[in-house]
Design a protein around this nucleic acid. Structure first.
Lengths: 207, 207
DNA sequence: TCGACTATTGTGGATTTCCGCAGACACCTG
DNA sequence: CAGGTGTCTGCGGAAATCCACAATAGTCGA
């Protein structure tokens, strides 16, 4: 891992070189792969930056690589590059969550602009993903029982009610409650509910 | 207002008729306009359903109408229809929030599928928008002071602290607090924070 | 078997919240 | 001016939360 970078996947070495040269001239870090398979074996969920992806390649197509990456939980913004694109393909890619779709031959300035936009977009995404991951980690520290109690707290129920519903003493609920606050690093139920609010959307990938 | 419907805007009467006939044959309600201007004078924020929009029209283009509608706060899902579309145009439209982009001549079944998808999408959107509006209305009932206190409550502060910060008696804070809960129709700070969580995204349009 | 973790409960007290009752003052409107 | 609304305050009590101290018991892995 070496910070955010533009990841290029294209089977044509000349295209890869041209892109790397172009990006380097604009002070944008890049790294290139010659096939979808190569990139896939390298890719991980924690990648940051963006992905410049050729649609038509021998072996796995760019579209298929895109799908695989998404299935793996990789949310890197993807800019498709293609010399034979049509409107339906572009529309489908965008609807599936691609960041952009560019036809070859491309305009250098326009492409760089889109890459920069994708990189900026990914900065926020990464920051957000990090905080979500942090919350998730805290959540994982909770024991089974603590999670049950937490849900009831978030339902706005009083300790007394929670105790009744779980068939345990109020004191026990209080203990769980304080453990929950401690582990989640919050000081009130309100904060807890707000922290958990960050998990809305992205229930997160498996694997 | 007459429930969700597919709104068609196309300068070509033959296209309008064909679309209306097609949709009617699939039991989809529709309504048609001959120009962007006509629809714009009819459109309001509360519309539900979807919008089938021709890109190229005399006078205001479909794209411009789309922008205008978005500026007005209309979030109707828009499916663009065009006979002379290119990839960059489609990409831009999708990135600007269009729901779909279809080239003419279109395939009847494919178009209906997309319309149905848009209608279903809009059902959720409308429901969500309604609940957001409801919360907003409740929020508007709060007096200036009550809103201040509410923010401090949401910051997780104790009544005592709030009283100090506002330079007022704790009892006063308590009174405000109960008024807030009453007006917002919640029974705890946790519920309040969750209800307010719905307002994330969509700060909502003016007009 | 020992220690760590989890779940459980109790006592008692400090602190906070919640609420009814009561009243004050300012501003605005009919 | 009378009445409504918003802001502010006090008193006192019921209910709930928060917490330190203290203890029992089951599971699980070293």
């Amino acid at each position: 891992m070496s910070g955010p970078a533009t990841h290029i996947v294209d089977d044509d070495a000349a295209v890869r070189d041209a892109l790397q040269w172009l990006l380097k001239s604009r002070a944008v870090q890049s790294q290139a792969w010659g096939s979808a398979e190569d990139f896939l074996s390298f890719a991980s969920r924690g990648l940051c930056g963006c992905l410049l992806l050729d649609v038509r390649m021998p072996g796995m197509s760019g579209i298929e690589l895109f799908d695989r990456l998404r299935a793996l939980g990789c949310r890197l913004p993807v800019i498709f590059l293609t010399g034979h694109g049509d409107v339906p393909m572009a529309v489908q890619a965008l609807k599936d969550g691609a960041f952009d779709f560019i036809e070859k031959p491309y305009d250098d300035n326009a492409l760089v602009d889109k890459v920069l936009a994708a990189l900026e977009h990914d900065l926020k995404r990464c920051a957000n993903e990090d905080s979500v991951l942090l919350v998730q980690q805290k959540l994982d520290q909770l024991t089974q029982r603590e999670q049950e109690v937490m849900h009831l707290i978030l339902a706005g129920k009083l300790n007394k009610v929670i105790a009744d519903e779980l068939g345990i003493a109020m004191r026990t609920v209080e203990v769980h409650r304080s453990h929950i606050f401690e582990k989640m690093q919050v000081r009130s139920a309100v904060e807890l509910s707000q922290v958990l609010g960050l998990l809305r959307d992205k229930p997160s990938p498996e694997s």
